[in-house]
Amino acid sequence: MSVTYLEAIREAQARALADDPRVYIYGQDVGSFGGAFKATKGLAQQFPGRVFDAPISEDAMVGSAVGAAIEGMRPIIEMQFADFSTPGFNQIINQAATLYWRTQIPCPITIRLPSGGTSGSGPFHSQSMEALFAHYPGLIVMTPATVEDAYSMLLEAVAIDDPVIFCEHKFLYYHLKADKLPTESIPAGKARVARPGRDLTIVAYSAMVHEALAVAEELALEGTEIEVVDLRTIKPIDTDTIVASVARTGRVLVVGEAFPWGGVTAEVVARVATEAFGLLDAPPQRLNAKDTPIPYHPDLWAVHRPTARSISAAVRNLLQM
């Protein structure tokens, strides 16, 4: 018996629906069809009237979630792909994110974003949008990297009284498995040391955690101990855990799948430079996707985003500094 990352997301939603009558799920094809990725498979039948299809109207999907939240509901909005959150961007950043600050009325909505690249998905079905949303005050942005976190963090997202952007990685949907669903978890907002080490820290999140762990495994064979920090949430960022790791290793490489200008990796490097400058033995480094749209062809895509191969090269370079 095992559970995949995608099944964990489905199970978390089933439990949220069962536990709280204020929860409902709204998105394209999420009803009887069960969602483009089947993240809501069977839920419309199990919870009649509470899991229903939206027109192709991301702006209106999010706007209506804000209105329902004002009336005391706790909606879950599924964007079919993270890329399609852009037509809903205005409602997310200007309506949902400002509501509590402006009115003291909470806005407990969860917006699920099937994020990141998979082979052959191309420019419009592969994007990582987390940095855009993290930029705006009033939003919490989660980027679970494990089956356990996909489950526990989604439940936490639904329970939080603020809007949560839940970036679930499509690359992890099917092949990432755990023995069972967790019964306890680290709270949102806290990072996790995914692998301890002493020579260099890789800070990563979402699917890049697994690329980083592969590099750590590879270099361990050569006697180099890499520490991998999984951010888990990127708004807020757990600066303390990052700084504590840098204090142990003196070197840090920050890896993200998103485009390279600004973003999560730049934010982490800026924090390390501000808070841990004296702890560094070498300049902090970052590795991102290339500064082009995401390519369709698998051979191009494999080089566009960071992989264990490119991370390994960056690590070896940093170890020489």
Binding site: S57, A60, G63, S64, V66, G67, E71, G72, M73, P75
Partner: peptide, 14 residues
């Protein structure tokens, strides 16, 4: 136009 769907959502909740 952004308030239309917010009103819709409130009505759907009611």
């Amino acid at each position: 136009g952004a308030m239309i769907s917010v009103v819709n959502g409130a009505l759907m909740a009611k």
